[in-house]
Simulated scan of single mutants.
Amino acid sequence: MASLNVYSVLVVLFLTCGAAMAMRENDQIIKENNCETKMGLPCVLEAFTSIFETGSISNKCCAKLVVLGKVCHSALVKRTLENPQLKDLIPATIIAKNIQTWNNCLALIYSPSPSA
């Protein structure tokens, strides 16, 4: 019975350390890439709304999102998901919307413009 308790404690420690490492990893990526200063607040809010709520992102903000880069974009979304106030969100749904928003912006920015 004692070995079961030790095992349980080890599992909890492993999971806690893994979550803490993931949080530090996202924070480190954000800091090293200066992610938080690459987009203005209006575009950050548009991107947030399109991913975490129901909304769309303008062409102008899509361009800024693509310039921000996928590494920053993903790290910021993952860090936002770690916020205890957002615990009711379903991570898989948010990640899917994150990918959809990124792909839509990428397609918009890099699609050939129609010829006149």
Score class of each variant (00 low, 15 high):
A2K: 04
Y7D: 12
L10H: 07
V11D: 02
F14G: 03
T16G: 06
G18D: 08
M21R: 13
M23S: 14
M23T: 13
E25K: 13
N26A: 02
D27G: 12
I29P: 01
K31W: 10
K31D: 12
K31I: 07
E32H: 06
N33T: 04
N34Q: 15
C35W: 07
E36P: 00
T37N: 11
L41A: 15
P42L: 03
V44C: 06
L45P: 02
F48A: 04
I51H: 01
E53R: 05
T54R: 12
G55P: 02
G55K: 06
S56M: 09
S56C: 09
I57D: 03
C61G: 08
L65G: 06
L65E: 08
V66M: 02
V66I: 10
V67H: 09
G69K: 00
G69M: 03
K70R: 12
V71S: 09
C72N: 01
S74L: 13
A75M: 04
K78S: 10
R79G: 02
T80I: 07
L81S: 06
E82I: 06
E82N: 09
E82L: 12
N83W: 09
P84F: 08
Q85A: 14
Q85T: 15
L86Y: 09
K87S: 07
P91F: 02
P91V: 00
A92Q: 05
T93Q: 05
K97C: 06
K97T: 03
I99P: 03
I99C: 11
I99K: 14
Q100S: 14
Q100I: 13
Q100R: 14
T101G: 06
W102A: 01
N103M: 15
N104S: 15
N104I: 14
N104R: 15
C105W: 02
A107F: 15
A107I: 14
A107L: 14
I109F: 01
S111P: 11
S111H: 13
P112Q: 11
P112F: 09
S113V: 13
P114M: 00
S115T: 09
A116E: 08
